[in-house]
Write a protein that binds this DNA or RNA. Structure first.
Lengths: 342, 342
DNA sequence: TTGTACGCGTTATCAA
DNA sequence: TTGATAACGCGTACAA
């Protein structure tokens, strides 16, 4: 920004000192400026089209006005809803959001956190769930510890395993409740599109679901628990595999909605009808679901709230042990899992 | 960020001057540092866990590393895809993206541009289309002019009416091509869900569509051109209205996909079958369409590319007249508009 | 109430 | 090649 008007210019134009100009424009705490001087300064600023330099202000004040957000893919409705919550909360606190994306490479999270530390972001919200990968987790924990040690504060969405405040979605409770609901509807031969084996959120949902079904006396055939990517393509591929072997299942649980949508596409493509031939359920209740036929049963996660909560958590200053903010989930039964009359 | 390690700390620890430390760590242009000294500095930095302060660097260098993005709603697939393009291009240029959202209030764009100017963002990408509203446009033009005068550079997605570089989607060509394609399929009684009357993109698409149909000898009944919000709800409401009056139409063109999806929901809700009772087409080819039944005919806009192009446009320095970067569109016929055999 | 002067963390200029 | 030192734009003790 080559030719910016500075506060000194304004001060000179108004015939006051830099300090007075600063106080007049920024209304420094309990320092007050005589009315006529303030008028002169404001007029000068207006005349010169002065714009404060937020960076310089941040320097001088010792703190920036930005919060960082780390997602895997902003086009994924799961992340874009969380992002809406983050920008909303940031906005309410008069802060800006720096959006960073790993492009689906979890290991990039570490460098993004370090990047945001260089920006001196006041707070960082990491939206992606954790993996069972000590190397990555250790690196991430170290990056976050450095960041916090340098005065930043971080919040995670996912599992409280990195030593920072975490918004914990009640995945297990939701998946178990879903399993019970489906069992109550008469389903007895479930399959699970389980996502990446190391992904903790995927695993929590998968295990709680299978455990609950087992507890109800209808254990999930281990052969009917398929791994896959946590994406549309992953869901599609897993579903295709499941259907290809002619598995005897009456309901498929995809551990997130994006995968469920992929599964739905695979079913459609193979001429398998949902729910007549097989029922289908997902998890998250992403916005996209409103446009899908049949309406998909899922477990609602209040994603915008999750983003907002994580931001608020990170913004509140707080000493001591990292906090955990549980977020309840809610089973939403829709037409993709009708009561079985058979 | 209270307790940050500074470059001075590193210099002292390494027993060199501040200048040398700076050069060693940042590899200042053609200035070179003796190998052993550089080692000492790097080791000291490592030991102290030094993290450069990007803000201070920006101050000193006179330019920041951030680009601003203004959207209406990041959960809208249209904007999230553009955002993905922007973050991609920014990433490639080693820049960060500051995401700001108007929350559907077009007039807020002005303050967001001013906000980004205060941040001294190198470039600003405004993703929302223009309205036919002189007051807002004048304010926006002024804000952008100030920003550019202060050394920033801006790019718009939409209409080249604000004096800055603009990525122009070929709305009219696409809508006309769509009209011709639909006519070719046998449709003769079209309706248009036209979006907000002042929204230029909506208007371009609407008018080109109706003009093309008129030119083909099948003019659109003016009563079958309905205004509405540029949203899911807007499309739903407009479609509901259209169907309520029992309009005699064989195909409905919603001027964007999000509205088309709302229209589809309305049709479903009222028991009107698509495409058997009425065909339906949209515009944009948002990602969500892959999950919708029936597959929706639309006009593809390469949204991620649009975001990338806008960013590149803003980032290239360039003198003189604002540039226009046209982006071609492409009709994509799908099952929601089958050939009419009647 | 106003002004002076220093500090924020870094880069860049200019001597040495 | 290295080192003082002056910027960068602003906030804020401290003194007046």
């Amino acid at each position: 920004m080559p030719t910016s008007v500075t506060l000194s210019d304004v001060a000179r134009e108004a015939g006051v000192s830099l300090a007075t100009a600063s106080r007049a424009i920024n209304g420094s705490a309990n320092r007050t400026v005589r009315a006529d001087l303030r008028e002169r300064v404001l007029a000068a600023a207006e005349r010169l089209r002065y714009t404060p330099d937020a960076n310089a202000q941040a320097m001088a004040r010792g703190r920036t006005t930005s919060v960082g957000l780390v997602v895997h893919d902003i086009t994924d409705p799961y992340f874009s809803s969380i992002a809406a919550g983050v920008t909303g909360a940031a906005d309410a606190a008069a802060l800006q959001v720096t959006l960073t994306s790993t492009q689906h490479q979890p290991e990039r999270e570490v460098e993004l956190v370090r990047l945001l530390q260089r920006q001196r972001a006041r707070a960082v919200v990491v939206a992606g769930g954790r993996h069972d990968d000590d190397a990555v987790n250790d690196a991430m924990r170290a990056a976050l510890a450095d960041y916090v040690a340098a005065g930043g504060s971080a919040a995670l969405v996912g599992q409280p395993v990195l030593g920072v405040d975490t918004v914990v979605v009640e995945n297990a409770a939701g998946a178990a409740a879903l399993a019970r609901a489906l069992h109550g509807l008469g389903y007895r031969r479930p399959a699970v599109l389980g996502g990446p084996p190391t992904h903790l959120t995927a695993r929590e949902r998968r295990d709680a679901f299978t455990d609950a079904f087992a507890a109800l006396g209808a254990p999930v055939d281990p052969a009917h628990v398929l791994p896959g990517d946590f994406t549309h393509e992953g869901g599609e591929a897993a579903m295709r595999e499941l259907l290809a072997v002619g598995a005897d299942v009456d309901v498929v649980f995809a551990v997130n909605d994006v995968m469920a949508l992929g599964a739905l596409a695979a079913a459609r493509d193979l001429g398998v009808r949902v729910p007549q031939d097989v029922a289908l359920a997902g998890f998250d209740d992403i916005l996209t679901l409103r446009d899908v036929v049949p309406p998909l049963t899922t477990v609602r996660v209040p994603l915008v709230d999750v983003g907002r909560l994580a931001t608020e958590l990170a913004l509140e200053d707080h000493e001591g042990e990292p906090r955990v903010r549980p977020v309840p989930t809610e089973v939403v039964l829709r037409a993709s899992t009708p009561a079985r009359t058979a």
